[in-house]
Amino acid sequence: MVLIWHGVDEIPTDFGPTAVTIGNFDGVHRGHQQVLATLKSTARHSGSRSVAVTFDPHPAQVHRPDTAPDLIMGIEDRLAAIAAHGVDAILVLHYTLAFAQQSAEEFVRGIFVDALRASHVVVGHDVRFGRGNSGDLATMEELGARFGFEVVVVEEFTEQASAAEARAGASLADGAAHSAQDLDDDAERRRCSSTWVREALDAGDVRTAAEILGRTHMMHGEVVHGAARGRALGFPTANLAHDSVGHIPADGIYAGWLVDQSGTRWPAAISVGSNPTFAGVARQVEAHVIDRPDEAPEAFDLYGQRVAVEFVDRLRGMVAYRGPEALVDQMKLDVDQARRVLAGVGSGA
């Protein structure tokens, strides 16, 4: 069981020695996963316990709330994703402007040395910490020599950036999902980052996002009542509440999965957008479960459930049709294409 502490006062006084890493870990992408794997290996070989230190809220939301990027995942999903990589403990630090005023030395001494009794600190080359991000790798190594911990530097994890990276979710003509091997052999390699994931999602390119994340991108939220237009057209949808967590990809139609609160994964055609055919305004994420069990509709009532929606591939952009009949014809095509795409990738997470 992974221990989760919300503040240094929750850390047992006899916990340690530890191997520690620090980061925002938004998305827990493949670069983060490499850091966590190095952390575990370092802890195992040094006879210490592995601890990942992260922040809530994200520092950008505190320093520049008006321009901070949308987070890839919420804090609960982030902690679950970190925990899934087998660390012994996670320390969540409440980030405030007052907290940010600590010098680099004050931060390291208070968290790594006094609270966690760190014997090793695992970081990337670009680590920054302390007031105004004044601390860097050289600072960490100098503090390590002074306070008695070893600094382990993780090499950057890169992924091939395809020449088609800006494809903005072009549809799959053959209905088969692409894999990492489909990227051009001579494509430029790019450092895996949360920024790159957001760029891909904002372009609707959920396949590239999945390659960086090492899994499909998902959102979590409660299913709420909508305008019931989908049901009237023969395509009932599960509408996510507007306070759902997870980065919303570009408007369009996607093939993906809906995971209900029992853990059952249902194939789905997912709509993201403002329903332009009906002059909608607010963006909505709604999932139509393909081939749902109509023989017992009362057993498939998702209202009030907290579900996950996973995005496998973008089928097309959002289009305003001349009327409901044209929209229904297109929705039939979308469902058929989503069914083919999902049949090619299986139902694994």
Rank of each mutant, 00 (worst) to 15 (best):
M1F: 02
L3D: 05
D9R: 01
D14E: 01
F15D: 03
P17Q: 06
A19T: 02
V20I: 10
V20W: 05
T21H: 01
N24Y: 06
D26K: 11
G27L: 03
V28P: 13
H29L: 05
A37V: 15
A43S: 07
S46I: 07
V53A: 00
P57A: 05
P57C: 03
H58E: 10
H58L: 09
D66A: 04
D66P: 15
P69R: 09
G74Y: 01
G74L: 02
R78L: 05
L79C: 10
L79Q: 03
A80P: 04
A80W: 08
A83P: 13
T96K: 05
F99C: 00
F99N: 05
S103F: 01
A104E: 00
R109D: 09
F112K: 03
V113P: 14
A115C: 04
S119N: 11
V122G: 08
V122P: 15
G124V: 07
R128A: 11
F129V: 02
G130D: 02
G135H: 06
L137M: 03
E142Y: 10
L143W: 00
R146I: 06
F147A: 01
E150H: 06
V153I: 04
V153R: 01
V153G: 15
V154N: 12
T158A: 15
A164K: 15
A166D: 08
R167Y: 04
S171P: 11
L172I: 07
A173D: 13
G175T: 14
A176V: 10
S179C: 03
D184W: 14
D184Y: 07
D185Y: 11
D186P: 15
R190S: 11
V197R: 10
A200P: 15
A200Q: 14
V206W: 14
T208M: 15
E211V: 14
L213G: 15
R215F: 12
H225P: 14
G226R: 07
A227V: 13
A228S: 05
R231Q: 03
G234Y: 00
G234A: 14
N239Y: 00
S244F: 01
P249D: 02
I253Q: 10
Q261F: 10
W266P: 07
A268N: 02
A268R: 04
V272R: 06
V281M: 07
R283Q: 03
E286I: 02
H288S: 04
D291E: 08
E298C: 14
E298A: 08
E310H: 03
G317K: 12
A320S: 12
P324A: 10
P324T: 10
E325I: 05
L327E: 05
D329F: 06
D329V: 11
M331Q: 09
L333I: 08
D334E: 14
D336F: 11
D336L: 06
Q337M: 14
R339D: 05
L342P: 13
A349L: 10
